[in-house]
Amino acid sequence: MIQELVAWLNEFPSSVALRESRYVWPFLESAHVMLLGLFVGTAFVTDLRLLGWSMKRVPVSELTGRLLPWTRIGFAGMVLTGLLLFYGYPLRYYHNLFFRVKVILLVLAAINVFVFHRGIHRQVADWDLDPDLPRQAWIAGAVSLSVWSLIVVVGRMIAYNWFDCTIQPQPAFVNWFAQCPTGP
């Protein structure tokens, strides 16, 4: 079902125009990369604080109150440029191994954000400046730092065609995981 939807999107004239464009596509890719500095960069700063590796005298609530809006702006930009990039090559990305890993990691990152904000962050005023932050806060920072780093890495790998369905033979796992249309 999703495969059919993606194959249908793939033939939209605007989708074709996007992947064939000389400047729009590189511009979108550049914007997606540059926004990493704003989104992942400010998220990393908050993670470093949660891990106790930087800015120990700055209350956590100040970062989640005053820096997080910038992280959100960066995230909105990442989503917008990311969706447009996907729209340029829907079929190719749908069957891309790294893209699929990235989607799974994005879900993990979202769960981590949800658990942190619905959980320990509700009582942030109680532990704001503790020399040792609560374990849940430290874990949220560690998970965020590692999962977003992995997302950046696999995101970069999407551009490489090592595991593309169009290049066969691939290991059985790759064909299964990427749902490569195989056989006659």
């Binding site: 500095g37 960069g41 950046v152 890495v153």
Partner: peptide, 28 residues
């Protein structure tokens, strides 16, 4: 390339943190 990008993330984060603070746009 991927590690270079991770460096870019960290650099972007700490450069923006201080520059945005100087401009009065965060952690005032």
């Amino acid at each position: 390339e991927a590690v270079h990008l991770l460096g870019l993330c960290l650099l972007g984060g700490v450069v923006l943190l201080v520059d945005l603070r100087i401009l009065g746009l965060t952690l005032t």
